Lab assay of single mutants.
Amino acid sequence: MAEAPPRRLGLGPPPGDAPRAELVALTAVQSEQGEAGGGGSPRRLGLLGSPLPPGAPLPGPGSGSGSACGQRSSAAHKRYRRLQNWVYNVLERPRGWAFVYHVFIFLLVFSCLVLSVLSTIQEHQELANECLLILEFVMIVVFGLEYIVRVWSAGCCCRYRGWQGRFRFARKPFCVIDFIVFVASVAVIAAGTQGNIFATSALRSMRFLQILRMVRMDRRGGTWKLLGSVVYAHSKELITAWYIGFLVLIFASFLVYLAEKDANSDFSSYADSLWWGTITLTTIGYGDKTPHTWLGRVLAAGFALLGISFFALPAGILGSGFALKVQEQHRQKHFEKRRMPAANLIQAAWRLYSTDMSRAYLTATWYYYDSILPSFRELALLFEHVQRARNGGLRPLEVRRAPVPDGAPSRYPPVATCHRPGSTSFCPGESSRMGIKDRIRMGSSQRRTGPSKQHLAPPTMPTSPSSEQVGEATSPTKVQKSWSFNDRTRFRASLRLKPRTSAEDAPSEEVA
């Protein structure tokens, strides 16, 4: 009796068929016929556990003709996506030579605008209408194809895939403007070719909807975003200037109206006075309405000098805001240009540092100066060695804690006790272990408590650290204090090793 083939788990290929790579489910599931010992083939499952149809090819690079078809379809799909992405970037994010197409579109729109203006002049109306009709045909074809291509290429973005995504893309403001202008152009052409009475009025009214094509030149909205950011950044200043200017306008108009309503027919109503105030304070000055009385002229002159300053403030605020924003954008561009080279330089330096163990090129690091100058660790070890030599091999803490019996001779020589300023008595072995921070803190506390006492003391002649007598400086308080830590004499004296002298005989010792 033939044995059933062993159940295979995992992703390994079956024996005897090495080139074939078959994806098997996580659990080997066989058909009921196979479990019962029949000759049925096992049921194939996909990666998600769903059964595959009987005629479906197995996924994998070596699955025969199905694999070749899959490779061809995958390559075609990649080319399709690449083309779609390229078209989308050309239309929505132009760079380099892609601006040539947008310059061509701008020339078409500008020519249409010029011809629309010439069509309103009686001398050039006939020729402009003929040229404009031909140009409209060209623009309908160009913009119609462009609109379709834009909607198709938007599928390269995830949020615009599918018919719902394309509809979302078509609802964008600039796409809506394109659609309105396209419909208006078709209506103008249809009305112009019919030759009816309505054609002339339709051409004159709907052609100027094509002015909206100038708005579509900035599809990404960079200028509007820049203007919005400047207004938002200086909103408080703008609101303040406009508010005060509006108050000056209504008060000036009302007072001039009261002064001129009886003697001047131009100011017969408050609305006429508001019109005069707006034209005057905005420095336009049509001259259609002028005050005639001396009181009205004085009020107009005073409020004009006051109001023009507030009406001119928004222009200066926006101008300075634009300058600052442009400078910030230039700085951001320079930062973006330098970020990648800086990151590459840091990575290269780290690779060199991690692979080169000698690091002989590091001549400006802490390790280099640590090898030249005595390190703080060596100074600490030197302090501890000196203290243990004086205390008979014991550390200062051990000397303080060691009990001394009554009447027993002390094995240590008597030492002079010292007192730290602002604290109780402490171990004499710690007097010379006072660090730089303690010395600086002690000097600052003395300056806070009594700076007036220092200038009363007789001035001391500054001497070099080499000429100081070591026996005289029994305490860190003898170090000359200065008002600034930048004094080199104080810094050098604080680094010197001060020996400890006994109370009975204080021989001067120098520590090399």
Rank of each mutant, 00 (worst) to 15 (best):
S320P: 02
A301D: 01
I105T: 06
R166S: 07
P94T: 02
Y160C: 00
N129Y: 06
F174V: 15
S67P: 12
I211T: 04
R95C: 10
E92V: 03
S63Y: 11
M1I: 03
Y270H: 01
V231F: 04
G192R: 10
E123D: 08
E22G: 03
L249P: 00
Q122E: 08
P341R: 03
S153P: 00
G37A: 11
A154D: 00
P19R: 07
P15S: 13
H292L: 06
Y232D: 03
A271V: 03
R331Q: 00
I244T: 02
V231D: 00
L295M: 05
Y257D: 01
K236Q: 09
H234L: 00
G10V: 15
F182S: 11
A199S: 04
R204H: 03
Y286H: 00
A28T: 06
G38A: 09
A233E: 03
L306P: 01
L118V: 08
G16V: 08
E130Q: 12
G37C: 09
S201Y: 07
I177L: 05
G70C: 10
S253F: 01
L227Q: 01
A241V: 01
A75V: 11
L48P: 02
P314A: 00
Y101D: 01
F106L: 09
V141G: 15
R161G: 15
T120I: 03
S65T: 11
E32G: 09
M1L: 03
H330P: 01
Y243D: 01
N344Y: 02
W97L: 14
T200P: 03
R213P: 02
V188G: 09
L281V: 01
L23Q: 13
E336G: 01
D272V: 00
R338Q: 02
V90A: 15
R339T: 08
L47R: 10
S268Y: 11
N85K: 10
D262E: 08
A76T: 12
S111C: 08
C157Y: 15
Q125P: 05
I134V: 04
E92Q: 09
W224L: 09
T283P: 00
F251Y: 06
Q164K: 04
V109I: 15
V248A: 04
G307S: 00
G60R: 11
A184S: 08
A76G: 09
I284L: 01
L91M: 12
T290S: 04
Y243F: 03
G302R: 00
G302C: 13
S201P: 07
G12A: 03
N129H: 08
I197M: 05
L306Q: 02
Y147S: 03
S31R: 04
A75P: 14
M1V: 03
Y147C: 05
A128V: 05
Y243H: 07
Q71K: 08
F303C: 06
L26R: 05
R220S: 11
R44G: 08
R161L: 04
W86L: 07
I250S: 02
T240I: 03
A271S: 03
R79S: 11
Y147H: 03
A202T: 03
Q347H: 07
G228R: 05
R220G: 05
R95S: 13
N344T: 08
P51T: 03
I308L: 03
G285A: 00
D17V: 08
V87G: 10
G60A: 10
L127V: 04
N89H: 11
H102L: 02
S111R: 02
D17A: 14
Q125E: 05
L113V: 06
S268T: 04
S31N: 09
V90M: 15
M217K: 01
F267C: 00
D218E: 15
A75D: 13
C131Y: 11
L274H: 00
E35Q: 10
L133V: 13
R8H: 03
E3G: 06
N264H: 02
R150W: 03
R220H: 12
D262V: 01
L83M: 14
K261T: 09
N264S: 02
T282K: 00
A259V: 11
R159G: 15
Y80N: 03
V256L: 05
G222S: 10
V103I: 10
G38V: 04
P14S: 15
R44C: 07
V149I: 05
V103L: 03
S50R: 13
M139R: 08
L108M: 08
C158S: 06
H234N: 11
H77Q: 07
L226P: 00
I148L: 02
Y286N: 01
R207P: 01
A187G: 07
G46C: 04
G12V: 13
D218N: 03
P291R: 00
P61T: 10
G296A: 01
Y88N: 14
L145W: 11
V151A: 03
L318V: 01
T27R: 10
E136Q: 15
G39R: 03
L299Q: 02
P59H: 09
G296C: 00
R220C: 14
N129S: 01
L324R: 00
G287S: 00
S31T: 04
Q33L: 09
V114L: 15
N89S: 13
A252S: 03
V181E: 02
S116P: 05
W97S: 14
R207G: 01
E22V: 06
C69Y: 14
L345V: 05
N196S: 07
I250F: 10
N196K: 05
T280P: 00
A56E: 13
L26V: 08
T27M: 06
Q194L: 12
S253T: 04
C175Y: 08
E237V: 00
F167I: 04
E260K: 00
H330D: 08
W163G: 02
A323S: 15
A76P: 12
K289R: 02
F106Y: 08
H124D: 04
G34S: 07
R339G: 01
A315P: 09
C158W: 15
S269P: 01
Y160N: 02
A199V: 07
G40S: 06
I346V: 03
S273W: 00
M139K: 02
H292D: 06
D178Y: 06
G316S: 01
L299V: 04
A184P: 03
T200M: 03
R43S: 01
R95L: 02
R204S: 04
F303I: 01
G70S: 09
V117M: 12
L11Q: 04
A252G: 12
I346S: 01
P54T: 11
G162R: 02
L45V: 10
W163R: 03
S153F: 00
H77R: 06
A68P: 06
I189N: 03
G10C: 07
K325R: 00
P42Q: 08
I148V: 12
G60E: 05
Q125K: 05
V215L: 10
V103D: 00
F169S: 00
E336Q: 02
F174I: 06
Y101H: 03
L48M: 06
F104Y: 05
L115Q: 10
K337E: 02
V231A: 02
F246L: 01
G16A: 11
S73A: 10
D266Y: 00
F303Y: 02
F267S: 01
H234R: 00
L58F: 13
I140M: 12
L9H: 04
R159H: 15
P19S: 09
L299R: 00
Q210K: 14
F179V: 08
I284V: 07
G39V: 03
Y257S: 02
A21G: 03
E130G: 10
G49S: 03
S205G: 12
Y243N: 02
I244M: 04
Q332R: 09
Y232F: 05
C175S: 06
H124R: 06
N196Y: 04
A68S: 08
F311Y: 04
T293I: 00
V138E: 01
A304T: 02
A75G: 13
R93G: 12
W276C: 00
G287C: 00
A323V: 02
F99I: 05
Y147D: 04
F335L: 11
Q332E: 09
L258P: 01
P341Q: 03
L115V: 11
L58V: 12
L345R: 06
R338W: 00
Q33E: 13
A202P: 03
N196T: 05
R8P: 08
F110V: 05
D178G: 03
A170V: 13
S309C: 02
L249V: 06
S65A: 10
P291S: 01
D262H: 04
I308N: 03
A263S: 09
Q84H: 01
G10D: 03
S74T: 08
A36E: 08
A68T: 11
F104I: 07
L118P: 02
V149L: 15
K289N: 01
E123Q: 11
S265C: 02
S229P: 00
L48V: 04
F104C: 10
E32K: 06
T223P: 15
R204L: 03
L255R: 00
A170T: 11
S229T: 02
R150P: 01
D288H: 00
I148T: 10
S309T: 01
F143I: 09
W242C: 15
L127I: 06
S41C: 05
E328K: 07
I121T: 09
L113R: 12
L91P: 00
I105L: 07
T282A: 02
L145V: 10
G144D: 03
R213L: 03
H77Y: 06
R20S: 01
L145S: 13
A252P: 00
I189V: 00
L345H: 02
L52V: 12
S65W: 10
L227M: 02
I134T: 12
Q332H: 02
